[in-house]
């Protein structure tokens, strides 16, 4: 088997330093999209579409806050998404500043400017759906947005953050249900964020016929998992692991 050994004797490709291994960064959706280098290959589309299906609402909110009426905002968002998926908008993405969030916003702003110019020349040709998105309810949702205090950019970021939280929560719920801990999750969901008085913990524990100690352990476990999921969700939208931390801190500001 000399040949096998011979191969082993050749220089080894370097592994990343140990510190980087610890936070191994899987090829996430966004890094896949970025990696395609704007070729918009067929293989990239699903990844792009998956991301857009999750994060379309912040875009809608942004367009609305820019002063478009609900119908226009819906059309424009759809049109924008369609172009992202179909056309080579990826050339706008700068891998050096590779957050999906900033890319989307830049692209959308440019799109709105172009659209405005075109609209003055010709009538835009109706919304066309490439993603199976339902814009239904978007406006109902938008009505709940804080009325006046936020700029469109700020609102976009806030929506983005909330979307991330919702997605993470949804995933946590799926996991809990899959593990047969649906009822536990349902009971703990409202208290996930905050410290609770012992009284309310004991109340919940009684309802679930659990010991209070066990319940606290469960809360803790759930929080840890939630944090992990949230970080993995963020990781999907940035280009490298080193950016996750930055994004966590940045988006926290949007909630202030």
């Amino acid at each position: 088997m000399g040949y096998v050994r011979a191969v082993m004797g050749l220089p080894e490709l370097p592994l990343p330093p140990p510190g980087e291994q610890a936070s191994r960064f899987a090829a996430t959706d966004w890094s896949l999209v970025l990696a395609a280098g704007g070729t918009n290959a067929d293989s990239v589309r699903p990844a792009m579409a998956r991301l857009l299906e999750t994060y379309w609402y912040p875009l809608y909110a942004f367009v609305r806050r820019k002063g478009r009426n609900p119908d226009d905002a819906s059309d424009l968002t759809q049109e924008f998404l369609a172009r992202l998926v179909e056309r080579n908008y990826l050339s706008l993405a700068d891998p050096a500043k590779g957050k999906f969030r900033t890319f989307l916003l830049t692209a959308l702003e440019r799109f709105l400017v172009d659209e405005h110019r075109r609209a003055t020349r010709e009538k835009r040709g109706g919304g066309r759906a490439v993603l199976s998105l339902s814009m239904l309810g978007a406006e109902d949702r938008y009505r709940l947005e804080p009325a006046d205090t936020l700029t469109a950019e700020h609102l976009f970021e806030r929506r983005w953050t909330i979307t991330l939280l919702e997605e993470a929560l949804k995933r946590l719920e799926q996991e809990s249900v899959a593990a047969g801990r649906g009822p536990l999750f349902a009971a703990l969901k409202p208290v996930l964020a905050g410290e609770q008085a012992d009284a309310s913990y004991s109340e919940i524990a009684r309802g679930l016929a659990m010991k209070e100690g066990a319940l606290k352990t469960a809360v803790h476990r759930l929080r840890r998992r939630f944090a992990a999921i949230l970080r993995s969700k963020i990781a999907e939208t940035v280009a490298g692991p080193e950016e996750v931390e930055e994004e966590v801190q940045h988006l926290f500001q949007s909630l202030a």
């Binding site: 709940l144 947005e145 953050t161 909330i162 939280l165 919702e166 993470a168 929560l169 969901k189 409202p190 208290v191 996930l192 964020a193 905050g194 803790h220 929080r223 840890r224 939630f226 944090a227 992990a228 949230l230 970080r231 966590v248 801190q249 988006l251 926290f252 909630l255 202030a256």
Partner: peptide
Amino acid sequence: DAPGGNCPACLWKIAAAPLEDSA
């Protein structure tokens, strides 16, 4: 729009705190 009835900022803090220390 509090996700799941949770304060978004407090929820976010769970993720913002370094994992091990919070534990």
